[in-house]
Amino acid sequence: MSKTFSSADEEHMRAALALAEDGLGRVAPNPSVGCIITDRNGVVVGRGATRPGGRPHAETEALAMAGGKAGFGTAYVTLEPCSHHGKTPPCCDALIAAGVARVVIACEDPDPRVNGKGIAALRAAGITVETGLLEEEALELNEGFILKVERGRPLVTLKMATSLDARIATHSGQSKWITGPIAREATHRLRAASDAIMVGVNTVLADDPELTCRIPGMEDRSPLRIIVDSRLRLPLTARVVVGAREVPTWIICAAGGQNRDRMAVIQQQGIELIEIPADNSGLPEIAAVLSELGRRGITRLMVEGGSHLFASLLRADLVDRIVWYRAPVIIGGDGLPVFQPLGVDSLDLAPRFERRHVEAVGEDLVETYYRSQR
């Protein structure tokens, strides 16, 4: 950390990061940003975060709270202030107009419309700008937005709930419930921080899930639901179909060869159909799926099943994180594995991840893995 940053600077930036984190899952296609403003004496006079839907921006919210007290003060922002005209004026212009003397930025914005231009505008106005405070935390928080900008796809997190021996169901198909209620509640919190949940049609056929956030007080945080259903086998009685007018739902199917009458009936339920060219196995090509989701503004995608979808993402090297809930139970080799075959011939070719976190959740264990950088 630069010597120019004080303990108070770090405290304010951590508060800004906490504000940004709370917005995850609600601000796509924009990044989730937090902003703290202090007056000339270092007293906090404004707090703001990107609002649902991506507008207003965090700086605008914080300045509105600060009123006229921001003059000669400091703004702490988790991502470089925007410098382009969109649905709202540039945030760097708002900070300049407010008369702040100093802006501390956690990380720069890779969006080509910004990418250093916000910092340059602030400095040109005579404002002291310092960058890099808690940069790694800020980059991790907005990794989904950054991936969308740089690679055109969302951050992909596999969420798995298995036995100790990585089984998601018994040989008879029973899967409810392998993990306990505390782990299941944690899953709902993960959903709330995601832009979308994606599952394969077999998961819907087997479990008939709602794929919503059902924590009291957070029901409005349910993300978009996406079902990969190459041949439109999803029954109209499925919960995700019945509730499609309350929670936005997309179905991704293979392009060409679909029954147009069947497609029309599904669309009449309030579901959007997305046709993606098929791969050699007849399934929607997974890289093209993610590219289309990125084009539509999805930045954070949680994949909850099933084993075929997990395997296709791993084979394509498109998994960024794994959140693995494991129950203290063993099902055995005749149970359904969490992954279908990957075709790995050599350990050098096996997907590798780094374990970042391990925590007990009731009787279960949750392990968090990130894509290995080696």
Rank of each mutant, 00 (worst) to 15 (best):
K3M: 09
T4P: 08
S7P: 08
H12L: 12
L17Y: 09
L17I: 12
A18F: 08
A20S: 14
D22P: 09
G23M: 05
R26V: 13
A28D: 09
P29N: 13
P31R: 15
P31A: 11
C35E: 00
C35R: 00
I36A: 10
T38Y: 08
T38W: 03
T38R: 01
R40P: 10
R40T: 14
V43A: 13
G46P: 01
T50Q: 05
T50F: 02
R51Q: 04
P52A: 10
G53K: 09
G54S: 06
G54F: 00
A58I: 01
A58R: 02
A58L: 06
E59W: 01
T60Y: 00
A62G: 11
A64Y: 11
A64T: 12
A66E: 05
G68F: 13
K69Y: 11
A70C: 14
G73L: 05
V77L: 12
L79W: 10
S83N: 11
K87E: 05
P89I: 01
C91L: 09
C91Y: 00
I96A: 03
A97Y: 04
A97W: 04
V100H: 01
V100P: 00
V100E: 01
I105G: 00
N115S: 12
G116R: 06
G118Q: 08
A120K: 13
L122S: 03
A125P: 11
T128S: 08
V129Q: 05
T131M: 13
L133N: 00
L141T: 00
G144P: 02
L147A: 06
G152M: 01
V156F: 04
K159F: 12
K159M: 12
M160E: 00
D165C: 02
I168F: 01
H171E: 07
G173K: 01
G173V: 00
G173R: 02
I178Y: 02
I178G: 00
P181W: 02
I182K: 14
I182E: 12
I182W: 11
A186L: 14
T187K: 05
T187I: 15
S194F: 02
D195K: 03
T203H: 08
T203C: 04
L205R: 04
D207G: 02
P209C: 04
P216M: 09
R221W: 09
P223Q: 05
P223K: 00
I226C: 12
S230W: 02
R233Y: 06
R233P: 07
L236I: 06
T237K: 15
A238F: 05
V241R: 03
A244R: 01
G256R: 08
N259C: 15
N259H: 07
V265Q: 13
V265E: 15
I266K: 08
I271Q: 06
A278P: 03
L283W: 13
P284Y: 10
A287Y: 12
A287W: 14
A288Y: 09
V289T: 07
L290N: 02
L290V: 06
G294V: 09
T299Q: 07
M302R: 06
A311S: 12
R321T: 08
Y325F: 14
P328Q: 08
G333Y: 15
L336G: 04
Q340I: 14
L347N: 12
R352S: 13
R356C: 15
R356F: 08
V358K: 10
E359T: 14
V361A: 11
E363G: 10
V366D: 03
E367Y: 15
E367A: 14
Y369L: 03
Y370E: 15
S372M: 07
S372L: 09
